[in-house]
């Protein structure tokens, strides 16, 4: 079946197998491999992308369901001049990633979360990330990154017990 999907601003028209998952379309047809597959039950969130600006797990949609729609992956997040999106920047500054496998999905989930709720509490961030698994960070610095990207308006402020993120090398 022929589909026309806009991925990171570029329109692509291709014939795809009816049963092709959107995540495989993004990785194998569009050639954007940052979006990962981490499970087969829509549990881990590694495949999270934005569909028309809202986060979806791209293993849960068929490519044909995205026909005529707009997909954004982490490759499409930084601005054209290479400036990182505030969420990407916060991940770096707060050491929000280790092995990097869950990261593209986490970043997209947080971008979507902050669009819906620009100044979430820590609890709201944690609740919003329930569908995204990370095995390296214990979520601590991912949550900090989300709060840092949201800016200072969240009510609980920074942690008191330790200094914030690091310094650039």
């Amino acid at each position: 079946m022929k589909v026309e999907i806009t991925v990171n601003g570029g329109q692509l028209a291709t014939d795809v197998e009816d049963r092709m998952l959107l995540v495989h379309y993004v990785r194998d047809v569009a050639g954007l491999t940052a979006t990962n597959v981490g499970c087969d039950t829509s549990s881990c969130g590694a495949c999270t992308v934005l569909l028309d600006g809202e986060s979806v797990k791209s293993c849960t949609l068929l490519a044909v369901q995205a026909d005529g729609h707009d997909v954004t992956t982490v490759e499409g997040l930084a601005s054209a001049d290479g400036q990182l999106h505030p969420v990407q920047q916060a991940f770096r500054e707060q050491h929000g990633l280790q092995c990097g496998f869950c990261t593209p999905g986490m970043v997209m989930a947080i971008v979507s979360l902050l669009r819906e709720n620009p100044h979430p509490t820590e609890e709201q961030v944690r609740s919003g990330l329930e569908g995204n698994l990370c095995r390296c960070t214990g979520y601590h610095n991912i949550v900090r990154a989300a709060l840092a990207a949201a800016g200072p308006a969240h009510p609980r402020g920074q942690d008191e017990d330790r200094p914030g993120g690091g310094v650039a090398p």
């Binding site: 990785r27 491999t33 940052a34 979006t35 990962n36 597959v37 982490v74 490759e75 997040l77 930084a78 990182l84 990407q88 991940f91 770096r92 500054e93 050491h95 990633l97 092995c99 990097g100 496998f101 990261t103 593209p104 970043v107 200094p163 993120g165 690091g166 310094v167 650039a168 090398p169």
Partner: peptide, 20 residues
Amino acid sequence: SRVLRMEDHRLLTAGGTYVA
């Protein structure tokens, strides 16, 4: 020192290159 990671820019913008 609390030096930020040199690995991160690539992982955050292009994703890692895992076996798949």
